[in-house]
Design a protein around this nucleic acid. Structure first.
Lengths: 252, 252
DNA sequence: AGGGGACTGAAACAAACTGAAACACGGCTG
DNA sequence: CAGCCGTGTTTCAGTTTGTTTCAGTCCCCT
């Protein structure tokens, strides 16, 4: 995996780049790893070792999202999650040990916005962060929750309903894969994305080397975006590198 | 975006952490176990051995939720549940002996908000308590007992009567399984739920691997929700993952 | 300018996944 | 006891997705 060389966007920063994330984990290695990766992707990151430190940081600074290990010494992560939820709507993503399915149930019901098994793929973490932020952005404090709509060249992708609407207002059916792919593009517009990046961001899996899955998926997506005149041009091929989503993207 | 201290789900919690729970069970061990666990998780807990003690505590203090064993010496737990319901909207979770009759019991008009097979996983108990409190929040103390009604796109699900009403005001019959499934969806709208999660949240059991039970149940539920035009779209399939309930859900 | 290798677009096929009808099973009702 | 209802399983058809394959493009080199 490579950290894409192009630096991040010139235009409508999906605001993701400004979000401030707090990583709570007692394992220094995981903390560092996550922090490094997230910083490279434009987030501000703070870290805490336990509940006490977490509270301190939450009070001292303005955090947009918390990543919380479910297993913390002296104080279950679930309790911390509930504690957060008792007083705010701060988005929380739980890290759970693999295979502990009871935690899975509870992680859901306890009010976490998402959860991720350890060890996790950094890109998947990123994807989920984006998804959660997208879901909660604007909805926090705004009852009717605007902000879940991504627009470009008259098109609109409702991330809540997973629905794409063309400039004429007609809903265009997208398969799950096409939706995820488009979403990835919309998260990083005007930026060359390698097949690798697209693969694990959109499909949550690693490229197998001689894999053309992304190509064909791009091709299919293009076809659907093509109903308008310059649909073809929306996703530009960057030879030897990957693809780039050209139009400017705004949130509504 | 700022860390708004507003809750986006519902009104900001009569803080789960402050809720007062009454455990009614004649088995001292279970009482202790549940109480200890719940206290560790921030609840206030009272205990009663039978119906008489229960009444005493209900009158003396302010209880937010009752956990009630269905098998009690001298006085069926079901009767106690009805008794509670006759005079209040106090949420009740029933503990039932594991096995055959759980399903049947639930189908009956006991009016419990949820149930749990014994022996139970403490975390699952916690999860269901949270879910029930979230659902009924605001209803307790409100004489008219609103709050047990979940609404979406003109539809309304009355969790007390286990009754679904379509936008025209017509009651649509739901089987037990369909009801539980819909309830789970309504608890976690706009969120991809895996078959596993749906299975143990809605059916109180673990998926057996090559299980299509959820699929067919979703299919049946869809059909019933379909009487309106875009019923099909309400439950979206997320290939390779599970299902998602699309409409916004409000409690009334 | 021409040729060759590497890369991409997309059709064709195959595998995986999902929808739903049909059937089977168990409990309940009359 | 026969039939009905709710539910899970089986099964088959329809979708979606990934791989293979081949043709067309682009780039570099001579």
């Amino acid at each position: 995996m490579t950290t894409t060389k192009t630096d991040y966007r010139a235009s409508p920063a999906p605001a993701a780049s400004q979000a401030h994330i707090l990583v709570v984990d007692d394992d220094a290695q995981i903390r560092q790893l996550a922090a490094k990766f997230l910083r490279e992707h434009g987030y501000r990151v703070s870290m805490a070792r336990d509940g006490r430190e977490m509270r301190g940081i939450l009070e001292a600074t303005s955090i947009d999202l918390v990543i919380l290990d479910i297993m913390l010494p002296g104080g279950n992560g679930l309790d911390l999650c509930r504690e957060i939820r008792a007083s705010s709507a701060l988005p929380v993503i739980m890290l759970t040990a693999l295979g502990a399915d009871t935690d899975r149930i509870v992680g859901l019901e306890i009010g976490a916005d998402d959860y991720l098994g350890k060890p996790f793929n950094p890109r998947e973490l990123l994807a989920r962060i984006n998804a959660v932020l997208r879901r909660t952005r604007g909805s926090v404090g705004t009852p009717q929750g605007t902000g879940h709509r991504l627009q470009f060249e008259g098109w609109s992708l409702d991330t809540r309903r997973r629905e794409l609407t063309n400039p004429d207002g007609v809903v265009v059916d997208l398969s799950t894969g096409e939706y995820e792919l488009l979403l990835t593009f919309l998260d990083y517009p005007q930026r060359a994305l390698s097949r690798d990046t697209l693969m694990d961001s959109a499909k949550h899996r690693v490229a197998t080397g001689f894999d053309r899955a992304i190509d064909i998926q791009v091709s299919r997506l293009r076809k659907k975006l093509d109903s308008s005149e310059d649909g073809q041009a929306m996703i530009k091929t960057i030879r030897g590198t990957g693809y780039m989503f050209v139009p400017a993207v705004t949130r509504a």
